[in-house]
Structure formats: structure tokens, C-alpha cells
Design a binder for these strands. Sequence first.
DNA 1: TGATAACTGCAAAGAATTTGCAATAATACT
DNA 2: AGTATTATTGCAAATTCTTTGCAGTTATCA
Lengths: 139, 139
Amino acid sequence: MIGKLIEGLRATGRRLTRTRRAVLRVLEGNQYPLSASELYERLQKEKVSIDLVTVYRTLTVLKELGFVSQLELHHEGQFRYEIRQGRKHHHHIRCQGCGRIVDLLLCPLKKLTSLIEKETQFVVNEHTLEFGGLCPKCQ
Amino acid sequence: MIGKLIEGLRATGRRLTRTRRAVLRVLEGNQYPLSASELYERLQKEKVSIDLVTVYRTLTVLKELGFVSQLELHHEGQFRYEIRQGRKHHHHIRCQGCGRIVDLLLCPLKKLTSLIEKETQFVVNEHTLEFGGLCPKCQ
DNA sequence: TGATAACTGCAAAGAATTTGCAATAATACT
DNA sequence: AGTATTATTGCAAATTCTTTGCAGTTATCA
């Protein structure tokens, strides 16, 4: 992963820094998408000296290079980021109680897309699908 | 509509005011969901004297009474509001070029919900589905 | 008409995110 | 290895959307 990161950074005239490495490492160590401030907190716990602004800027770069994807879950008012590397297209379900986010591996929308294109005359480029509910612990 | 509004307001110890009437009227005159600031601008054009804060507070009340629903479209960073009165459950498609929002009357997710509940052990209470693309003019 | 709340406007606070700029650090070249 | 170049960082401050506090205004009901 680091190898590909260096490659990607170089190709766009960027540099591999202590902070970029640290951000990527924390994201890799987490199976659910983190917000910028969550990432910041975890870095602080690990005694990595970094500014929240730098976290934002790093996430922007990683997103531009295609290493992470940016999620916008409803009722949250913030972005979340997760490693995109080698992951299939998927959606999420979020617990309305504790906020826990779980991946959904299915996506039933491919067929629907062409139907919608016919109906609206739009060219569909993306879709977001998200469920909200209560996880077993919060029920 | 106004009749039901008065009824709803009364029932919760609230009052029908010039501003609430105006906000509802503008929402009714629009077929696509408006943001608070868009609503504010339209009211200004109509020479209705109102503060943006009051627009927000009014939208909150209308939402609580079930007269409008609050939407959170992706890549927008703001809420939108649309009349809910007598409208069926639906989703939206938004043009990535001009931002135009069109309703989608179909919803293919009812069957999917029980599948997801089995898979995740969540109780699903809501879902959001949204498409992004280019409208005929922006293609 | 007057009393009692609810409602409004204004200013200011909050939260997430972005921007400007000088100091710092990674890279390339010698 | 040493130095010049230029990307990156940290800090402060700005932005955007939304919410809150409070005193003055207005709708409602006796």
C-alpha cells in the first residue's frame, strides 16, 4: 500500500511525509469509515504530532489519488473517509442509536439505473444508498 | 393546507403568523426542494420582511408538524425542504452540472429491507437513495 | 382592551471545513 | 553529505450553514 502511495504521490509531484504515512496507517487499521476529527483524535492518542488542518489536507490528497473514498452519511453533518484500495462498491447502514456503521456488500441498483436514465433523460454517474436503523445492541 | 396548518399549530400551542404563512406559501409554489437560504431569497424578492433565523425556525416547526420533510442531498452541505403533504415516498436525482433536482417516484427498496435486516440484525427504520448525473441540458 | 405567552430579529455562538502565509522539511542536484 | 528548490505543515483566521440567547413585538384569549 505504501509502495503504491509513493508511486501515486510522485506521479503528481507530491511527497511522502510522516503525516501522510500516519493518516494512511490509521485508516488502514480501521474497518469503518472515520471522520477527520476521529482520525485526528486517534493520531493524538498515538502521539503523532499533527494539526487537524493537515488531516483535512491529507485526506483531500488521498481522495484525489483514489486511495480513500469520501462518504457523506445522513444526519451526521460531516464527511467520513475509508480506504478504497481493492474494495468493491458497497453501501452502508448506520445505527440511529450508537452511530455504528456497517458495510452492506450488496447493491441492487445497477438494473435500476438504466430505468432511471430512460425516465429522466439524465446520464447517471453515481448513486448513494444508505440505511438507518437500530443495531442489535440498541434495539 | 392553511386550514390543516392552523389546526396543527393550535394543537401544539403554537400560532399562525405572517411569516409561517409566507414560508408555507413559497414552499407550495415550488416543485423542487428549497434550502433555507433559497427560501429566504425568494421571500425577500416578494418583499416579505423576515430574518433568515426565522426561516430556519419556521422550517423546524413545519417539519415537526409533518408538513415538510427535510432532505440532505450529497455534495451540497445544506438541508433542503419540500412539502410532504399528501406526497408519496420518493427519492431524488440531482444534476452534477446545474444542481437541478428531479423527483423519482419509484422505490425499489422495500424488498431489500427485509434482506438487509436478516443480514445485519439491524432493525431498519429509514433509507436514503439518491442519484447523481447530468441532466439533458448539461450533458 | 389588556395580559400572557409565543414569535421575531439581531447578534453572537457553534461545528465542520477551507484558506493565507511564514516556517519547516522532503527531494533533487552537486 | 550539503544545499537549493519547492511541497508540506502549523497556526490563525475566514467561510458556510445552522443554532441559541435575549429583549422587543405580536397573536390569542379572557
